[in-house]
């Protein structure tokens, strides 16, 4: 029964993310559409791959690199929509961040941790604080704060997964895998509600 519910959560997550790719992000301008599609697209494919392969797939080193696109895409979408003059420097940060994470895959644990913490952490903090800032500036309705909640969820999930990958688990692996489908589902729901406010 638990497995069925987990699969249902992952499937629902993939369907909501699919909706966002097909229709939800269409109202934005070209680059923002691209960035949001990147984030939600990774979530669509991640949901399907988790359904097919199970959580074993998380052991693949490519997962960490591809998963970086989720927070970075949302971050870049927000920057392009509300702070276009910072677009290029944020894009440079994102590209360098991905390259840094990819380059440190073959190095020791310390460098991997530092690269992950820097890129994921920075992107996560931006997604958390930018919606609050945008709301306080009166540029979007209060619903945009759902996105901050989504950032908190993605941050929490990311930290749990990173702790597993770095073999210093904050929670037992079984518990993390038990929580993961629901973390992903609520993250997609909150991010979608936040995007709807824009």
């Amino acid at each position: 029964m638990r497995k069925v519910l987990e699969k249902l959560a992952l499937l629902t997550m993939a369907v909501i993310a699919s909706y966002q790719v097909a229709a939800g992000v269409s109202k934005f301008s070209s680059w923002a559409v691209f960035y949001y599609t990147l984030s939600f697209g990774v979530l669509v494919v991640a949901g399907l791959l988790l359904l097919i392969f199970g959580f074993e797939i998380l052991k693949n080193p490519a997962v960490v690199i591809v998963a970086t696109l989720i927070p970075l895409g949302i971050f870049m979408g927000l920057v392009y929509s509300f702070f276009p003059k910072y677009h290029i420097c944020c894009l440079a940060f994102s590209i360098l961040g991905i390259l840094l994470i990819a380059a440190t895959r073959g190095t020791g644990r310390l460098w991997k941790t530092l690269a992950l913490a820097l890129v994921h952490g920075m992107a996560g903090l931006f997604i958390f604080f930018l919606p609050i800032f945008i709301y306080l500036k009166g540029k979007a309705s209060v619903k945009i704060l759902w996105m901050s909640l989504g950032a908190a969820i993605i941050g929490g999930g990311g930290i749990l997964l990173a702790s597993l990958q770095l073999k210093k688990p904050l929670l037992p692996q079984r518990t993390v895998f038990l929580l993961l489908p629901w973390v992903l589902l609520f993250m997609v729901i909150t991010l979608s509600l936040g995007l709807d406010a824009l």
């Binding site: 699919s18 097909a22 992000v25 559409v33 599609t37 669509v44 494919v45």
Partner: peptide, 15 residues
């Protein structure tokens, strides 16, 4: 069909 559907197909195709 609208571009959104093509985007979604693109995502599935990348996978």
């Amino acid at each position: 069909l609208s571009w959104g559907y093509l985007r979604l197909l693109g995502v599935l195709a990348v996978g």
